[in-house]
């Protein structure tokens, strides 16, 4: 009798195991298939959601932000870099930047441009300290054939590779076109840092999460310009709403033939450049 009960229990347990195995196995295959399918659709635009951010008087479905850079105007004063660091509380060291400026200098007789940015040790020495930004006059004795500055920042791409790879969805694209990071949900794996072809992302050592330019989302949702645009003395940086045909960015895009950085990446950047050379990427 006891044997029979044991046998029945045994049967039950084995049935359970079989079922369990099936579920686990099936689940694994389903997940694998799911990943493959979603991977293929990864670069599609984010779906419209009903979630409205709690910003008084702001409707993110009504805006379409974009950024313009006129490199022919930039004088390399680096006020933008400084303003960004202050406005967004970015670490003052020369290894973490939400925006930076590159200098391209081609000397007479040379094939390629010499490139540096404010984080170059020579430039830091010229500025006097980390946290102060200045381009050293390092080419004053050289014969310069061509020279220009290129401000860089997150491109807030239409198909952002960084958003695609984020395992938690902590970084996402807002309805108004800005790529942001939820610092309370980011696990700090830095996969997005690897995926960004522009080097726009960095690890916030203090918060232990990834960080990047947000086009000063806290400002633009209140009708203000991003800090870097605000301080630029020569209007090399242009910002605005593409839904508004009279906004600075709409006029900029209408009046200029623009380029984007690394179009071959398929990321479709939303920072548009005027006056950059072939070596800029």
């Amino acid at each position: 009798m006891e044997n029979t009960v044991e046998k029945l229990e045994e049967e039950g347990r084995r049935k359970f195991l079989r079922l369990f195995g099936g579920v686990v196995g099936g689940g694994g295959i389903a997940i694998a298939a799911g990943t493959l399918l979603t991977e293929a659709a990864a670069t599609e635009a984010p779906a419209k959601t009903d979630i409205i951010p709690a910003i008084p008087g702001y409707d993110w479905t009504k805006h379409h932000w974009a950024f313009g850079v006129d490199a022919t105007k930039c004088i390399g004063c680096l006020r933008c870099v400084e303003a960004c660091k202050v406005e967004n509380n970015v670490a003052k060291d020369p290894n973490h930047f939400r925006t930076w400026v590159e200098r391209y200098v081609t000397l007479e007789g040379e094939e390629h441009a010499r490139i540096d940015s404010q984080q170059d040790p020579v430039n830091i020495a010229a500025a006097g300290a980390e946290g102060k930004y200045r381009f050293a006059n390092r080419y004053k004795d050289a014969k310069v054939e061509k020279a220009f500055f290129v401000p860089k920042l997150c491109n807030h791409c239409t198909h952002p590779a960084c958003v695609q790879v984020c395992p938690t969805g902590a970084t996402y694209k807002t309805e108004d076109g800005v790529v942001v990071i939820d610092h309370t949900y980011c696990i700090g794996c830095q996969y997005c840092v690897q995926a960004c072809p522009y080097g726009a992302r960095f690890f916030n050592e203090e918060k232990r999460v990834t960080d990047k330019c947000t086009w000063c989302y806290h400002r633009i949702t209140k009708g203000l310009n991003p800090a870097c645009v605000e301080v630029c003395p020569v209007s090399a940086r242009v910002f605005g709403d593409r839904n508004d045909k009279q906004s600075p960015i709409s006029i900029f895009l209408r009046n200029n033939r623009v380029n984007v950085l690394r179009p071959e990446s398929g990321n479709a950047p939303n920072v548009f450049y005027v006056g950059i050379d072939k070596e800029v990427s």
Binding site: I31, A32, E39, A41, Q164, T168
Partner: peptide, 9 residues
Amino acid sequence: PHTTSAFAV
């Protein structure tokens, strides 16, 4: 899980 992430799975 963010389904487009190679790492999420």
